[in-house]
Simulated scan of single mutants.
Amino acid sequence: MIFGYMRISTQKEKQTTDRQKITLEQYATDNGFTFDELIEERISGTVSAERRPQFNELKSRLRRDDILIITDIDRLGRNADDVIMEFKRLKTDSIRVIALDTPYLNEWEKIQDSSIYNMIADIFITLKAHMAQQEREKTVQRINQGLDVARAKGKTLGRPKAELSSNFIKEYDKFKKGEYGNMSASGFAKMLGIGRSTLYKYVNIYEGLEK
């Protein structure tokens, strides 16, 4: 069976799945097939794949050699690591994923050959993981550069240990471990509801305490 999955953010009330639906249906027309079902889910992109009700209900119905088509590979998860994990799970269950925004993963004829698909899927997983790691390293580097600049300007970045909230410590540990994928320093600060300069201050305090 062939399924299409469309996701839009609950934070954008005026947004609809029209663009995704038109794109998916045009792909079906161009390649001479019909979808068995198109599934729509309205949920924030910050929610991990395993916590998306419609997506999980769909996965429970997928069977070996079924095909799942999405307009953008990032619809599969919250971040790069979540996407990789979900993609691997589907591949293990012999579900073929077609992502229309991803070279080679969007070629209908090649996807029909299991050996070619598996080769493409393995290459995609390797590249996606490498890109995610590079982005994490760049983010850490940018944070450290920001701290160096602050120190060079003679700014005092320290605060008593007690003033670092347990929530910040927990979230920063997750950020360092890459659980937020390729999230930037600015994005991380925004998620915490603080400014980037404040983030640098907190990181400097925390890193200092760890030594």
Rank of each mutant, 00 (worst) to 15 (best):
Asn204Thr: 14
Ile69Ala: 03
Ile205Cys: 15
Ala129Cys: 06
Lys12Pro: 04
Lys110Thr: 07
Ile84Asn: 10
Asp30Thr: 09
Gly77Met: 05
Ile69Pro: 01
Arg19Gln: 12
Lys153Trp: 08
Ser184Arg: 02
Gln26Met: 11
Glu179Trp: 09
Arg51Gly: 00
Met183Ala: 07
Arg63His: 11
Gly187Arg: 04
Leu127Ala: 12
Ser166Ala: 15
Asn79Ile: 04
Arg61Gly: 03
Lys88Leu: 10
Arg89Lys: 13
Thr10Ala: 13
Leu209Arg: 10
Thr17Arg: 00
Glu171Phe: 12
Lys201Pro: 01
Gly32Met: 04
Val149Cys: 03
Asp101Met: 05
Asp101Cys: 06
Tyr117Ala: 06
Ile84Lys: 08
Asn56Met: 15
Gly146Thr: 11
Ala185Cys: 09
Thr10Pro: 01
Phe87His: 08
Gln26Gly: 09
Asp18Lys: 14
Arg89Met: 10
Ser186Ala: 08
Tyr202Glu: 06
Met191His: 11
Ile205Glu: 12
Pro53Lys: 13
Arg42Tyr: 02
Asp113Thr: 09
Asp93Leu: 11
Val140Ala: 15
Gly77Glu: 04
Ala99His: 04
Phe175Ala: 04
Asp74Cys: 06
Asp74Leu: 07
Val47Pro: 01
Tyr5Lys: 05
Asn56Thr: 03
Lys153Glu: 12
Thr139Ile: 05
Lys176Leu: 15
Gly146Asp: 06
Thr10His: 10
Lys138Cys: 03
Gln134Asp: 15
Arg142Tyr: 12
Ala99Asn: 06
Met191Val: 00
Met1Tyr: 11
Phe124Gln: 05
Glu40Met: 03
Pro160Val: 13
Gly181Met: 01
Glu40Ala: 12
Leu76Arg: 01
Lys12Gln: 14
Arg78Lys: 13
Asp81Tyr: 10
Phe33Glu: 08
Gln112Cys: 03
Leu68Tyr: 08
Arg19Leu: 13
Asn167Val: 15
Asp18Leu: 14
Asn106Met: 05
Phe3Gly: 02
Ile43Trp: 02
Thr139Ser: 15
Ser186Cys: 01
Gln141Ile: 04
Ser165Pro: 12
Ile39His: 00
Ile73Asn: 03
Gln145Glu: 14
Trp108Ile: 00
Ala80Trp: 00
Val97Asn: 00
Lys153Ile: 01
Glu137Gly: 02
Ser9Val: 05
Gly187Lys: 01
Ile194Leu: 06
Tyr180Phe: 15
Gly77Cys: 07
Gln20Lys: 02
Lys59Tyr: 00
Glu163Asp: 15
Val97Ile: 15
Glu207Thr: 09
Phe55Ile: 05
Thr10Asp: 12
Asn31Phe: 09
Leu62Pro: 06
Ile39Arg: 01
Ile143His: 09
Arg51Asn: 13
